[in-house]
Simulated assay, not measured.
Amino acid sequence: MASFCCSKKFFFLLFLISAVPIAFLISLETAKPTTHVYEYHSTGWLRECGKWDDLNRRFIVAFFEGGVGQIQVPDDYSPATVLEEIPLVKDADLTGNASLGIAIDRPRNRLLVAVADVFGNRYSALAAYDLTSWNRLFLTQLSGPEDEKSFADDVAIDAQGNAYVTDAKASKIWKVGVNGEFQSIIRSPLFTPKEWYKNLVALNGIIFHPNGYLVVIHTFTGNLFKIEIGSEEKVKLIEVAGGTLSFGDGIELLSPTKLVVAGNPTRLVESSDEWETATIVGKFKGPVHRLTTAATVKDGKVYLNHMFGLGYPKKKHVFVEAVFS
C-alpha cells in the first residue's frame, strides 16, 4: 500500500481526481452570464453582504475578515469595466471577528454592521459608522464569552432608528436603540424547530417593512416569520405556498408586497395580505459556485451578492442581476 501511494499511478490518479472539480469550476466561471454583472477586484476572498448606496453611487460590502469597503460605480460606467474595492473601515479592537449583515440608515446617514466571532460564537456586536466620515458612532456588545453561544448575522432598522439583529446560532433577535443602547431580546418557540440539525443555522435575513413590522427568515427550515413590534412583540409564522424557502440567506424588499430571498436558487416571494401569507412567484439561479448570500436593489433591479471571490492575486467578486422566472 505504501509503495502504491508513492507510485506514479497514485499521483496520476490524484491529479485526475483534483482536475475534475477544478475543470467544473472553470467551466462555471467562464460561462457567459445571462444577466448583467458588476465585477470588482478585492483583496479578500469572502464578502458576506453588499448593499447599494444610491445617494453615493456605490456598493458597500462587508468583509468576512472584518471591516467595510466600497465599490464606486462611475457615471460613465461600461459593462466591460472591472471595478475596484476600496477599504473604508478596519477596527483593530474587532480583529478576529467578521463583518456580516449590513443595513444603510439613510435618515441618519449611517451604516449598521452585524459583527460576530464566526467560528467560536463567543462574541457578537452591532457597530454603527457615519456614511461620510466613516467614524464609528457606537459599538454595542450583544454577547460575550460568558453568555450562550451566539452569531450576530443580519440587521434591520425601523423608522425610529432602532436596530434588530438576528442571532443565527441561538434563534433570537437583539433590539438596540437609536443611540446604541441595548434594549431587549425577542424570543419565540416558533424560532426553534424540534430537530437539532435544523438549528445549525437559525434566524438569518431580516427586514423592516414600511408598514411597521419585521420579516425574518430561518435558514435551515425556510420558515418566514412576521414580527409585530411595539410594547409587545408578536411572532407569526407566514404561510408560504409554491415551494420552500429552505437555505434562504439575506432578504430584501423589492416593494411592500415583494420580497427577495437570497440563496441557491434565489426566490421572489409575494404577499397581498400584509405578509400573513405569501407565495413563491419566481426563481433565479446564478453562479452557484460563488454562493449567493445577500440581495440589494439598484434602480429597481435586484442584484445578488456572492460570498466567494476567485482569482489571484486580485480576487474578482460579482454582483449579479437576478431576473426571475
Rank of each mutant, 00 (worst) to 15 (best):
G177V: 03
T30M: 04
L203Q: 01
L28I: 15
E84P: 09
T292H: 11
R136M: 05
F247M: 13
D117K: 00
E65N: 09
G263M: 02
W196K: 15
S171K: 10
R58H: 01
V165T: 04
A92E: 13
D273Q: 07
S272D: 08
V178I: 15
I238G: 00
L214T: 01
F12Y: 14
Y38S: 12
L25R: 12
V176C: 00
L100P: 10
E84A: 15
C49R: 11
I207P: 06
S325G: 15
V269N: 03
V240E: 02
G250M: 06
A80Y: 10
P74H: 09
Y38M: 09
G101A: 05
S78N: 11
P107F: 09
F138H: 08
R57A: 14
F191K: 02
F138L: 07
A163L: 08
A168Y: 00
N305K: 15
L25A: 12
N97R: 14
K198M: 05
E84R: 15
G205D: 10
I17T: 10
I104E: 11
H218A: 01
L310T: 10
D273H: 07
E276S: 14
T266Y: 04
L55K: 12
P145R: 07
A322P: 08
G300F: 11
W45P: 06
G282C: 00
E85G: 09
T35F: 01
D76F: 08
F182A: 03
F59Y: 03
T296M: 06
K175E: 12
L100F: 08
P265G: 05
L203T: 06
R290I: 02
A114L: 00
Y312E: 15
T277S: 10
K236R: 14
A23W: 12
N109K: 10
K8E: 06
D154M: 03
G50M: 04
V61R: 05
A116W: 03
K234Y: 01
E270P: 11
G67K: 07
